[in-house]
Design a protein around this nucleic acid. Sequence first.
DNA 1: ATGCCTTATTGTCAAAATGACCACAAGTAC
DNA 2: GTACTTGTGGTCATTTTGACAATAAGGCAT
Lengths: 245, 245
Amino acid sequence: MAVKKKTDESKHHRFQGTGVPPECVRSLSIDNLIFGLDHGELTILLIKHAEGNTRGEWALPGGYIREKENLQDAASRLLEELTGVKDLYLEQLRTFGKVDRFPGERVVTVAYYALVSADKYRLIAGSSTLGTSWFSVNELPELIYDHDEIIEHGIKHLQHQVCHQPIGFNLLPEKFTLLQLQELYEAILNTHLDKPNFRRKILKMNLLKPCNEKQTGVAHRAAALYRFDSEAYERLTNAGFSFVV
Amino acid sequence: MAVKKKTDESKHHRFQGTGVPPECVRSLSIDNLIFGLDHGELTILLIKHAEGNTRGEWALPGGYIREKENLQDAASRLLEELTGVKDLYLEQLRTFGKVDRFPGERVVTVAYYALVSADKYRLIAGSSTLGTSWFSVNELPELIYDHDEIIEHGIKHLQHQVCHQPIGFNLLPEKFTLLQLQELYEAILNTHLDKPNFRRKILKMNLLKPCNEKQTGVAHRAAALYRFDSEAYERLTNAGFSFVV
DNA sequence: ATGCCTTATTGTCAAAATGACCACAAGTAC
DNA sequence: GTACTTGTGGTCATTTTGACAATAAGGCAT
């Protein structure tokens, strides 16, 4: 992560040419770590920069915060501008601020993360990007700055969170089978779970509402579909229940 | 948390008069949330500002980050400058950046936290403070800016962490009794635990080394002293063990 | 239709963990 | 000594877990 320091101010901006927009805080940026799930593989949303000296390189969708903008609002705005993904619940992950993480200037970045059901969103390439794409966490391209470190931290955080909060459901479609849920946990935790035991444990929590529908288009017995019952979760949480997988 | 906005720049600094030191990043600060334990009560370390328009008010020990300083280094430096507490393991808590959290200018603050055994440190009043003191979390004074929000978040985080990582031991002296440990959990989680069951659970983890010593100076049967065995914890963690209370 | 293959779903059973409590031990205070 | 306080070692019924067997349901090839 060695970095050349230049004194020519015009070269220090994230997007050379545009530079830091005038209404933005110069030393503070946002980066979004968006997780998806694709055929049982955990994926991450990346953009390819179109401008500046990082042109052509892959990065987390991020940018600068405006003077009069809350951190989370900035995260949402940037994500939508760059990828078209909106109305997402972004949660703060952590702030990364190594002195040399960004070339030339001191820029500290606040990382946000979210989990989305990839099929819910249509990706666009924002004006300052050459493209937007999902990558399996196992086949990530080379990334700019310390974005690999952000991702590494994010995956660890996700592994922890997914065991203690029912956030995994955000990665699945509205209606899902128990096996899909199990495979999600297996993909994130990188482990194998016993199917009957997993069923038993999840169902006993009373957090799933049966849809009274079955899977279609599979070449074997169709599984029952469930949906996450967030009201039940609220109720149980207030009653002292704590979600643990 | 309403805040008056002024346009006179000289009044916008955290420490009026000194202002933001020239070698520091103007829009970024650090605040430290230091937890202690005093007679079974969770406590927090606060300082009383000596300068600026917050003179005389209580606050978390914090300040500005230098251009060439990592976040965590800044947290340690500020903590030592203000309170004399050093060589502490500070962990990042979260970044707070509401537009109006700081009067006049946009200042985002990165909060760090740590747990200390209060008896290990001698407090001093730093040069820009009128005093340093521990406060019970149940009797906090009025605090500046959004420091109450930081504390609230920090306590929630602590309650969660203490159940999933053996960090509570940092709040105790080197050698402690099982009851002290239990009272720590009771204080943080604000709950009551069954003594024999708590013993059983903790001891079965094999994370405590008996000191083969007893408590002294108590008016009843003396309890055995234990110390936390961090090597055993490493070993167990690598073997897939996960600490849960 | 029949048998085959795949996945879904239910059930069993021993081992381990939990929660509620009891009883005795080991000290101090008097 | 007795009274009192906290430590420490138990019991016991209930719940949870982990491993795995057995059966159900559906599509597919023949």
